[in-house]
């Protein structure tokens, strides 16, 4: 059944988005909290936050690339 393809894509990208959303939410929340505690360290915290967010976001991007490959192959 080729229609199941679309269901698979939806599930894959949806689950990945849930995971990445939780992860990035936690990272940014912690970064904001630490900036509030120590505003002078803003630059370093921001760099680490972007790094962590990008690492987490990458997991969602893998799912996205996979679903695109399923969709257009």
């Amino acid at each position: 059944m080729p229609e199941l393809k679309f269901l698979a894509i939806g599930i894959a990208i949806g689950l990945a988005a849930i995971g990445a959303g939780f992860g990035i939410g936690k990272i940014v929340a912690q970064a904001i909290e630490s900036t509030g505690r120590n505003p002078e360290a803003h630059g370093k915290i921001f760099t680490m936050m972007i790094l962590g967010a990008a690492l987490t976001e990458a997991l969602a991007i893998y799912a996205l690339v996979l679903s695109l490959m399923i969709l257009f192959k």
Binding site: A54, E57, A58, I61, Y62, L64
Partner: peptide, 13 residues
């Protein structure tokens, strides 16, 4: 894999 797919995926997306 993670280096290449991250960059490729983000730009293509």
């Amino acid at each position: 894999i993670s280096f290449s797919f991250r960059l490729f995926g983000a730009v293509l997306a």
